[in-house]
Design a protein around this nucleic acid. Structure first.
Lengths: 159, 159
DNA sequence: CCGAAAATGTTCAATATTGAACAATAAAGT
DNA sequence: ACTTTATTGTTCAATATTGAACATTTTCGG
């Protein structure tokens, strides 16, 4: 059965990618644990960080930045609003869009959570030379561009 | 508010990691699309690949390899069994454990799916020099070791 | 200006994932 | 042998995520 098909784990790039995926998974797991004291989870942190950087962003724009569907935001944001972390205010110009803002509570939770995440990343990645980290980031950014263009092609031409 | 706290996006390692995470997310999205023709999703592919490599593995061992909880396997595997992709047979020695095997159907689906995933990875990563891929893999493997030991510490000492 | 097309957000059902509590079996300690 | 502890798998409720169908509002073509 393995006669004519080269097995994936013989491909160096395949093996590399699997390692990347596993590392992401683990990092997520550990981050989840460390965030429990703040009673938030990674998806919410992603949202908070983006609101911290881009105050007044719309739900649509936020979903695009996070690479998730709009419906995701429609489910998550009202919960965060009820918890007093964010506010949603309608845009004056365009009555369709809701613009998002951090509350003071949300801002301080975000700062604490960013501190935790930054510390985790520094701690676990500090043994890797900075050159190597930067090179990896550049590879990943090229990968992101490639994959995003592929996704856009698919949705333009859904034949 | 940003006076005394250094912002995460000023840390090069933080930025690098965010790029890694986004790339993983996108890769997952694209892989999901390309697997629809086989009617399976990435989590099932992960399972199939591991059964392909390690026939007769137990549910527990499989969960450990995939870095997911045992309950996850308890939910997913019966569905895959109903779809005729795998078989679960009780261990003769130890009546607690269920050992997992691919059916012929499962094996051919796995081979097709591995082909798709390998092609995707080769296609999107081929522009990165092999040295760079290997260096990244080594970094990620070190990261995995670090994070796993941290997880183990936590679960040993859950104070 | 009016009707068609696009954009934004919501709802819903389907699927994933987790952790906790549980039952059955095995291993260890006495 | 017997009680205790550990391991394996299951169930359940809670939370995430997605895509499709939908309503509202805006934009565009005529």
């Amino acid at each position: 059965m393995n006669k004519n098909q080269p097995l994936p784990w013989d491909h160096p790039r395949f093996r590399s990618w699997i390692a990347v995926a596993r590392a992401c998974q683990l990092m997520q797991t550990v981050l989840t644990r460390e965030l429990t004291e703040l009673d938030i989870k990674p998806p919410h942190l992603d949202i908070l960080i983006n609101l911290y950087r881009f105050e007044g962003i719309s739900q649509q724009e936020l979903a695009r930045k996070l690479l998730v569907g709009r419906s995701n935001m429609s489910m998550a944001l009202p919960l965060m609003e009820k918890r007093g972390l964010i506010e949603r205010r309608g845009d004056k110009q365009d009555k369709r869009v809701l613009r998002l803002y951090l509350t003071n509570e949300g801002r301080s939770v975000t700062e604490a959570a960013m501190g935790i995440q930054t510390a985790l990343i520094e701690r676990t990645l500090s043994s890797e030379p900075l050159d190597q980290c930067m090179a990896m980031a550049e590879s990943m950014e090229r990968l992101i561009v490639t994959l995003q263009s592929e996704i856009r092609e698919d949705s333009r031409e859904p034949a």
